[in-house]
Computed example of a mutant assay.
Amino acid sequence: MKGLYLERDTPLHRLPPEVKIAAMVSATVIVVITPREALWAFAGYAVLVAVIAAIGRVPAGWLAKRSLVEVPFVLLALALPFLAAGEKTMFLGLEVSRDGLYGGFNILAKGTLGVLLSLTLAATTTTRDLIVGLDRLRCPQIITQIATFMLRYLSVLGGEARRMRIARISRGDDPRFLWQVRGFAVGVGALFLRAFERGERVYLAMVARGYEGRMPAAWLAAGAATRNQWLAAATVPVAAAAIAGTAVILG
């Protein structure tokens, strides 16, 4: 997440993390439950996401580049009209399945909007703030603990894996050859053992210093969202709900 965060001074960046998380999840749920036939609703959602990104000064090119993570789903969505069975219809001069066409659009639209909302949240909220926000929302302790340790030590494990790879190559190992996969497997096993031992030592050190499974109450209370901030964040899911309702009514 460190590589996704964009340091800016915007109203979106200054909002407490818990209200941003709640607004993003609520808006995503509304997008997901929107009927696939309500085509105009998805156009409205796209405009809403563009407005949110503009407020947070998140560049369109930055979003487009990192949205490539959904390419496999895009390929599935493009292939579905030709693979699905059922009633046929003409689209751009091609005979395609009507259900497949709607299904492909459903995957593409909802998946893209969900990715863009998640990227906007990541671009305007630091990793630490995300964890704090989840804790303030009373997310299960086990989830926040796992996320905290994973994000904190992922770069450490990545650096150690790179050093082990360099050490293997300097001793004549070439991972391109299949018969040398044994050395790679041994390295992965050694990395797992080192990570497990390090995690155990870190956990014991934290417990010795008074760790009880949650962040200190003072940390969670400092900077908690006010009523006005909750109301400001609520405009996003409310706007999404209004778009969905209008599209369904107009048919």
Rank of each mutant, 00 (worst) to 15 (best):
G245K: 13
L117M: 14
L137I: 09
G100I: 04
A79S: 11
I142H: 07
V31A: 11
R165E: 04
I243A: 01
A23F: 10
A147N: 00
L157R: 00
M215Q: 11
R165H: 08
S97Q: 05
V96K: 02
W62S: 05
W179I: 12
A22Q: 11
L6R: 13
Y5I: 01
W230A: 02
Q145M: 15
P216D: 11
A241S: 09
L121P: 07
R162K: 08
F196V: 12
S170D: 07
I131E: 03
K88Y: 03
A225T: 03
F192C: 01
L78A: 15
G100K: 08
R182C: 00
A247F: 12
T148P: 08
A38Y: 12
A233N: 05
V188M: 15
A23W: 11
A79L: 13
E197V: 11
K2N: 13
L76H: 01
L63I: 14
R201K: 15
A109R: 02
P81R: 10
N106I: 00
R176F: 11
A54V: 08
I169G: 00
V51Q: 12
R194F: 03
P16A: 10
M90Y: 09
A22F: 15
G189K: 13
I52V: 15
I107D: 08
F82S: 10
R209I: 13
I243S: 04
R66T: 02
R8W: 02
V186Q: 09
V69N: 02
Q229P: 07
F184P: 00
K65G: 06
N228Y: 14
E200S: 12
R57G: 04
A208V: 05
V74Y: 13
V207S: 03
A147H: 03
Y153T: 00
K110N: 09
Y45F: 15
T126A: 05
A208C: 05
L76Y: 05
A41M: 10
L4R: 10
A234C: 10
V25G: 00
R209D: 05
T144M: 02
E18S: 08
V207Y: 02
S155I: 08
I146M: 13
P59D: 05
M164W: 09
F192S: 11
E70S: 08
L116N: 00
R162N: 11
F73C: 11
T126D: 07
S97E: 11
W219F: 06
R201W: 04
